[in-house]
């Protein structure tokens, strides 16, 4: 029996501009990602991979088409509903970490818990959950450090802890190693592999085929259309 689909899109289309200036950044893309999969999205600049990433991450809505996230149609949700989806179901890892400056690693990780309206937690419970997440990424001894006191690799680990803290169904990683040296980059990829092995569903955007080869499947986009899907021959180590 096939694993349930976390992501399922049907003819996703995103059109920018009006009249003669209309550009289809995304033109009828239908993909699916199953639970526990580690998938890479590749494509040259202008291929629509950022647009797809933003829609899959519920940061924007498609012009047309359907998007089921965890079997829920999110393509028609309003801003407030999308914010709740981002909070509960999606964890982001950005190229530039996007941590709040002058805020400790612990407080950065607590942030998604503070915006969670569905789960009542006391201050102590939040700190406990966040501390656990920071421990998972190996930063138990850096919790009170602010981002500017941490290395790039450490900052990205804080970001990963923040992405995990609300136990999302999907982790979106946008060029997670793009700002890192090769050693730190390798460590971050290793961490993502560990998460994957523990059952996390990860979608990663990258322009590096070497990084993409670490995943199970690579989805190639070209001119806003699905170009090809390549299986990387690796099985999820469950």
């Amino acid at each position: 029996m096939a694993a349930r689909a976390i992501i399922e899109t049907k003819t996703l289309t995103q059109i920018y501009g009006m009249g003669d200036a209309r550009v289809a950044a995304l033109d009828g893309v239908s993909i699916s990602v199953h639970e526990g999969e580690f998938v890479a999205i590749m494509g040259p600049s202008g291929s629509g991979k950022s647009t797809l990433m933003n829609i899959l991450g519920c940061l924007s809505r498609p012009t047309s088409g359907e998007y089921f996230l965890d079997n829920e149609d999110v393509s028609g949700l309003d801003k407030v509903e999308l914010a709740a989806i981002r909070n509960k179901k999606i964890g982001y890892i950005f190229q530039s970490y996007n941590l709040l400056s002058r805020t400790t690693a612990l407080d950065n990780v607590i942030l998604p818990l503070q915006y969670d309206r569905t789960t009542e937690r006391t201050k102590e419970e939040r700190e406990e959950v966040a501390t656990k997440a920071l421990g998972m990424v190996g930063l138990a001894d850096r919790m009170q450090h602010q981002p500017q006191e941490l290395s790039g690799g450490q900052q990205q680990r804080v970001a990963i802890a923040r992405a995990l803290v609300n136990e999302p169904v999907l982790i979106m990683a946008d060029e997670p190693t793009g700002n890192l040296d090769s050693k730190s980059g390798a460590e971050i990829m290793e961490l993502l592999h560990d998460l994957h092995n523990e059952g996390a569903t990860i979608v990663m955007v990258t322009h590096s085929s070497e990084i993409a080869s670490h995943t199970q499947r690579t989805i190639h986009l070209r001119d806003g259309k699905l170009d090809k899907v390549i299986s990387n021959g690796k099985k999820a180590k469950k």
Binding site: L59, K79, A83, N87, L100, L111, P112, Y115
Partner: peptide, 16 residues
């Protein structure tokens, strides 16, 4: 603006 973007991405609503 960037801080606002970060907060939005992790679930802050417009009213937050």
């Amino acid at each position: 603006t960037r801080e606002i973007g970060i907060r939005q991405s992790i679930g802050a609503t417009p009213s937050d």
